[in-house]
């Protein structure tokens, strides 16, 4: 009889693993900690996790978002190399592993919440445009981003016109006249031209719990 039960052991083990109540979903081990350290509530964190699961399983269902899945989620097609998507992905990838876990995803998206601090949005956008991460934005970097944007949208401007736009930008932004834009100058520019931060706010994040209601079936807490 005992031998018979021995045979069932592997079966019982896998069933137990399946229903292991404290087997937290990967990346959502501590939604309350994430809620305390971001602008999201616990329910919003859990709803965001539903979005994360969708994105992270699009190509390889491994509970992590690689760059291909990141790009696919944004544009629904596999775009060719994109300077900006690379920069955004790198800023999400705070652990520099080349892949995004849920915690990185949630913390980065928190900055895009309408309720996030403007200073956090200014910091993120500065990092985004500081392509070489030198602590300032150089003229050459601005030109590279302008040319990239024009190429992406199929717009054509002569080099003179591009140089003119960049001259005008540095006239306004480079108040210390050292040929580069530092974080303070960037903040001053953005405060004078708030539209420069328009990409830094996603209204969708305000109703994430209604967009991804399925989180309630996995909710671990009663978030009133």
């Amino acid at each position: 009889m005992l031998q018979c039960l021995e045979g069932f052991k592997p079966l019982f083990a896998s069933i137990l693993r399946c229903c292991d109540l404290n087997n937290q979903p990967r990346g959502l081990e501590d939604p309350e900690l994430l809620a305390r350290e971001t602008v999201f509530s616990v329910s919003e964190i859990e709803a965001l996790y539903e979005l994360f699961k969708r994105i992270s399983s699009a190509v390889i269902d491994d509970g992590l978002i690689n760059k291909e899945e990141f790009q696919l989620a944004l544009f629904k097609i596999n775009k060719k190399e994109s300077l900006f998507v690379d920069r955004v992905f790198d800023l999400f990838d705070t652990k520099h592993s080349g892949i995004l876990g849920f915690e990185e995803f949630a913390r980065a998206l928190s900055v895009f919440h309408p309720n996030a601090l403007v200073d956090d949005k200014i910091e993120f956008s500065f990092q985004l445009y500081d392509l070489k991460q030198q602590g300032f934005i150089e003229r050459q970097e601005v030109k590279q981003m302008v040319v990239t944007t024009l190429a992406e949208s199929g717009m054509n401007l002569s080099d003179d016109v591009i140089e003119n736009i960049i001259n005008k930008t540095f006239e306004q932004a480079d108040t210390k006249h050292d040929g580069k834009i530092d974080k303070e100058e960037w903040k001053n520019l953005v405060l004078r031209h708030p539209s420069l931060l328009k990409n830094m706010t996603l209204q969708y994040l305000k109703d994430i719990t209604t967009t991804f209601p399925s989180f309630v079936f996995h909710s671990q807490v009663d978030d009133t």
Partner: peptide, 30 residues
């Protein structure tokens, strides 16, 4: 005399901000 020329971009970052690659709302669109 009416100024009918194209809108003058105030600076390069406004142009860069038009890049679709910087618009993350795609995450939420099916």
């Amino acid at each position: 005399q009416r100024n009918s020329g194209p809108p003058i971009l105030i600076n390069a970052f406004q142009l860069i901000g038009m890049s679709s690659c910087l618009d993350l709302s795609g995450f939420f669109e099916k």
